[in-house]
Amino acid sequence: KELVLALYDYQEKSPREVTMKKGDILTLLNSTNKDWWKVEVNGRQGFVPAAYVKKL
């Protein structure tokens, strides 16, 4: 599985998104969309802005 690092805090704005804190390590589930990547964090799956994370 591929991991990404949260570069910034992000507060979810819809049920399809997830909240993350700067420094969190997230599991990358899908990065086919250039703007929104699907990740898993704390057992929850959802989208975060691709610009807010970096592949490890």
Rank of each mutant, 00 (worst) to 15 (best):
1 K>M: 12
1 K>I: 15
1 K>W: 15
1 K>T: 12
1 K>Y: 14
2 E>C: 13
2 E>I: 13
2 E>A: 11
2 E>F: 12
3 L>K: 11
3 L>E: 09
3 L>H: 11
3 L>I: 10
3 L>C: 11
3 L>R: 11
4 V>F: 07
4 V>E: 00
4 V>K: 01
7 L>T: 05
7 L>D: 02
7 L>S: 03
7 L>H: 04
8 Y>W: 11
8 Y>H: 13
8 Y>R: 15
8 Y>C: 13
8 Y>M: 13
9 D>F: 04
10 Y>N: 01
10 Y>R: 02
11 Q>F: 15
11 Q>G: 08
11 Q>I: 15
11 Q>P: 07
12 E>V: 06
12 E>S: 14
12 E>A: 13
12 E>G: 15
12 E>L: 08
13 K>G: 08
13 K>Q: 15
13 K>T: 14
13 K>E: 08
13 K>R: 12
13 K>N: 10
14 S>K: 07
14 S>I: 05
14 S>E: 09
15 P>I: 12
15 P>N: 11
15 P>G: 10
16 R>Y: 14
16 R>K: 12
16 R>E: 13
16 R>N: 15
16 R>H: 13
17 E>T: 08
17 E>M: 06
17 E>P: 04
17 E>Q: 10
18 V>L: 15
18 V>D: 00
18 V>K: 02
18 V>S: 02
18 V>G: 02
19 T>Y: 04
19 T>R: 06
19 T>V: 03
19 T>P: 08
19 T>E: 04
19 T>W: 04
19 T>L: 03
20 M>C: 07
20 M>N: 00
20 M>A: 02
20 M>G: 00
21 K>S: 11
21 K>E: 07
21 K>L: 09
21 K>N: 09
21 K>P: 01
21 K>Y: 12
21 K>F: 11
22 K>R: 11
22 K>C: 07
22 K>A: 15
24 D>T: 08
25 I>P: 02
25 I>T: 07
25 I>A: 03
26 L>G: 12
26 L>W: 02
27 T>I: 15
27 T>P: 15
27 T>S: 09
27 T>Y: 12
27 T>H: 12
27 T>K: 09
28 L>D: 00
28 L>V: 07
28 L>G: 01
29 L>D: 02
29 L>V: 12
29 L>N: 03
29 L>R: 03
30 N>Y: 06
30 N>A: 11
30 N>Q: 12
30 N>H: 08
30 N>T: 08
30 N>C: 11
31 S>W: 08
31 S>G: 12
31 S>A: 13
31 S>Y: 08
32 T>Q: 12
32 T>L: 11
32 T>F: 10
32 T>C: 14
32 T>A: 14
33 N>G: 10
33 N>A: 09
33 N>C: 10
33 N>Y: 08
33 N>M: 09
33 N>R: 09
33 N>P: 05
33 N>D: 15
34 K>E: 12
34 K>D: 12
34 K>Q: 14
34 K>V: 11
34 K>S: 13
34 K>R: 11
34 K>W: 07
34 K>M: 11
34 K>C: 11
35 D>A: 11
36 W>Q: 03
36 W>M: 07
36 W>C: 06
36 W>H: 03
37 W>E: 01
37 W>Y: 08
37 W>L: 05
38 K>Q: 13
38 K>G: 06
38 K>A: 09
39 V>R: 00
39 V>Q: 00
39 V>H: 00
39 V>D: 00
39 V>Y: 00
39 V>C: 06
40 E>Q: 08
41 V>W: 08
41 V>G: 14
41 V>F: 15
41 V>E: 04
42 N>D: 14
42 N>Y: 11
42 N>L: 11
43 G>T: 05
43 G>H: 07
43 G>M: 07
43 G>F: 06
43 G>A: 07
44 R>S: 06
44 R>L: 08
44 R>P: 01
44 R>E: 07
44 R>H: 08
45 Q>D: 08
45 Q>S: 12
45 Q>W: 08
45 Q>P: 07
46 G>A: 04
46 G>V: 04
47 F>C: 11
47 F>Y: 14
47 F>V: 08
47 F>D: 04
48 V>C: 05
48 V>M: 01
49 P>S: 02
49 P>M: 03
49 P>G: 01
49 P>E: 02
50 A>C: 06
50 A>R: 08
50 A>L: 02
51 A>P: 08
51 A>Y: 11
52 Y>V: 09
52 Y>M: 14
53 V>C: 14
53 V>N: 00
53 V>H: 00
53 V>Y: 01
53 V>E: 00
53 V>M: 06
53 V>A: 03
54 K>S: 12
54 K>H: 11
54 K>F: 09
55 K>S: 10
55 K>N: 08
55 K>E: 09
55 K>C: 09
55 K>W: 09
55 K>I: 15
56 L>W: 08
56 L>F: 10
